[in-house]
Every structure is written in C-alpha cells, then in structure tokens.
Write a protein that binds this DNA or RNA. Structure first.
Lengths: 144, 144
DNA sequence: TACTTCTTGATTAACTCAGTCGGATTCTAG
DNA sequence: CTAGAATCCGACTGAGTTAATCAAGAAGTA
C-alpha cells in the first residue's frame, strides 16, 4: 500500500511542468532544485514520462521539458501507473494489468473473499486517482 | 499500492480460523493445506497475529490456533496493519504511523498537493478496510 | 568548434519480500 | 518419565526492488 519515491517525485515534477505549461520549458536542474529531487534520479523519471507520451523535450542550450498534453487531460492515475505500475493492491483485481492468482484456493470459483474486498479497494483508489487531473493537483484544490 | 503475500496469506488463514471459531482449534498444517500456503511462512504470520493479540495457541499434541476475539470485532484494516504496516500510501498522511516528510518543499506549509490527494486515498482505503470485519469477510459478503 | 542539455545504459548499495531451516520449548499420550 | 507432536523463535538466504549514481553519447545553440 505504498507510493514509491519515483511516483512522488514524478508528481511533484509535474506540478512544476503544469505551472509552466504554455509559458516556458523547464530544465531538469530547475525542477530538481525547486522540488528537492536528486537530478539524476529525476532524469530517468522525466524520461519515462516522455516515453509514455506526456512530455516532450529539447536538447542543447535552451532545451528542457514541456507538458505535451493539457493538464486537465492527464490524471494522477495515469502518471502513477507509468511510474509504479498498476494501482490494484493485487494482480487478480487489476483492470489495466490483470493477472490470475496462482495459488489461491478460490481461483476460478465464483467468489473469492480477498478478490472481492480488494476489488472495492482498487475501485476506490482508481476512482480518486483517475478523476484527479494534473490541473486540479497543481492548483492544490481539494478535489474538483 | 500493493498487498504483500504475507497479508494475503494472513487474511486467507483468518478465513479458516473464523469459520472454526468457537468450534475447533486449527493446526498450521491444516490451514496451510486448505489455503495453499507454505507452512513455515504461515507459521511466522500466525505468530505475528498471536503477538498482536488476535489469536491464542496451544502447543503439543491437540495444539493449534484459535481466534481470541469475535470475528465481527476484527477489521481487515487491523490485520493488514499488523502484517504490512500502515495503510497510508505515504508517511505524512498516516494516522497510525505518521512521519513528517523530509525532502518535500511543501513540508510544514499549509497545503501540499501530494499530501492532500494521498490523504483522500488513505481515507478511502481505511474507510473500506476498517469497516470490513472478519465476519463479513469469511462470509464472502460484498460489504455490510 | 565549444558548450550545454538531454539520452541511454550500466552499475550500485541498501533494503524488502517470500520463504527456508534448525533447534528450543511446551504439551499430550502411553 | 519418555516419545512424539505441535508451537516458538531467531537466523539465514536468494531474488527482486528501490533509489540512486555514473559515464559516455547524441543533439541542439552560439
């Protein structure tokens, strides 16, 4: 039940990029400095977000990173899935990365207690994180 | 955002112990066999639950484990906290194991975006898991 | 060409997870 | 009182993850 540093840093970096959206491109050291993130670690996070299509980047002097999509079309759920993997607490209730549980005696039965509870937990988490956009997030609003 | 095997096994073991509650005491190999859990791993789980005051045990022939409290007074949240630690995705929003975030630029400010979102996530998770009892769970009911 | 910045892949140290093992202790049965 | 059955307890291990760090390369700007 834990959010990795990677995701936390990623989200914090995206606050900066959201605030700069449309205005400026940010370099990794700027983001790192403002958000107290180790530069080289931040680097691989930004790269992952770029590969996932959220950011674009330019090299060389005057280079840096920019948000490629409007902040109100990116959910925190998407970001965390990119950096941390599925939101579901257990593979057999994941909607984006389902995995049959191997050793469960209830597997393939109509109802597994664990699956049932963890399914509702997954839905609760995803319900929050998939409806919370970067725009909400960067504005610090307690939910839209 | 993940439930460990330890907690999963623990919960499954408690299904058996709940069903046997008041009737019989169960030995680790019985639980292990019925729930497909490695016996020696199960052992340390049962021990932890015992130390936490949920189970009692007897040694020697005719020994085994019993639920010590009524199943409708034990929540899944309690169990998972014993085996996996706090439910909160991040230390600074945990109610049972709060920890100030060290490197966050918003620390001690009135509002941190991460803290705000993860706080609602924590509340959602705890809201489900702390109101779901072993009795509900073992009965397989889709929530009381 | 010189310099700056992103890009990529390798490497690392510390830690956690999932499980195993060996021996000690306590209980029952005979 | 002894044998055997069960829990108790701590140490250990191997694989994998986390959180970085490093070095070298590619691309853009002046």
């Amino acid at each position: 039940m834990k959010l990795s540093k990677k995701s936390e840093y990623g989200l914090r970096a995206l606050i900066e990029l959201t605030q700069a959206h449309g205005t400026a491109t940010l370099q990794r050291h700027e983001i790192a400095a403002r958000q107290h993130i180790p530069v080289e670690f931040l680097e691989q996070i930004l790269l992952a977000l770029k590969r996932a299509g959220l950011l674009s980047s330019r090299r060389g002097m005057k280079g840096g990173y920019t948000l490629i999509k409007p902040p109100d079309e990116i959910s925190l759920g998407q970001v965390i899935r990119i950096l941390d993997g599925p939101l579901a607490p257990i593979g057999c209730v994941s909607k984006t990365a389902y995995q049959k549980c191997s050793d469960c005696p209830y597997a393939n039965k109509s109802r597994c207690p664990v699956q049932s509870v963890m399914g509702t937990v997954r839905d609760a988490i995803a319900g929050i994180l998939d409806h919370y956009t970067l725009a909400d997030f960067a504005a610090g609003s307690p939910k839209g």
